[in-house]
């Protein structure tokens, strides 16, 4: 966001910070209910960012909504929460050449948003990426 020449940290800043991690090919902020890409940067995994967002959303929804991964009545997912903040923090998909890390974003209002990072497996650092994504998603809604 840019108002009168003054930049306010928002989606683009979050994604550009994510792109500074080693081995990152692309990043996107995705609404996992609708499958909409709210913002994208870098290359898209697969055909294009829109398709990638829709497919990422589908995967995230399966994890966020199935009791095996997101049990009810546990810490971080009380029944009264109505799934506002999914108990799942992130999920990692490992392919032969890449990592995909999907981190759920907790917002103070009702939303279903995640940060998707696509990393090269040789150059990327999965542990660092997960830590940094936690930090970035927290800052996205606080700053």
């Amino acid at each position: 966001m840019c108002w009168g020449g003054f930049r306010v940290p928002g989606i683009d800043e979050c994604l550009l910070h994510a792109m500074r991690l080693p081995g990152v090919r692309g990043a996107a902020l995705v609404d996992w209910t609708s499958g909409l890409a709210l913002g994208t940067v870098g290359d898209a995994a697969g055909d294009d960012h829109e398709t990638a967002a829709a497919e990422t959303a589908e995967l995230a929804r399966m994890v966020a909504e199935h009791p095996t991964f997101a049990p009810l009545g546990t810490a971080g997912g009380p029944e009264t929460d109505h799934g506002k903040n999914p108990p799942v923090e992130d999920l990692v998909v490992t392919t032969r050449t890449c990592y995909h890390v999907l981190r759920f974003v907790e917002t103070s209002f009702d939303s279903s948003v995640l940060l998707h990072l696509w990393l090269d497996r040789t150059d990327g650092n999965l542990a660092l990426a997960r830590l940094r994504m936690r930090d970035l998603t927290e800052r996205l809604v606080l700053e």
Partner: peptide, 27 residues
């Protein structure tokens, strides 16, 4: 015509939250 900016400048919501919520409402 600057309610969005006011909400962020006065610390009522963060820039990221406003963008997420606004894009959600827009689409």
């Amino acid at each position: 015509g600057a309610v969005g900016r006011y909400l962020v400048d006065s610390g009522l919501v963060s820039g990221g939250e406003l963008e997420i919520c606004h894009l959600g409402a827009l689409f």
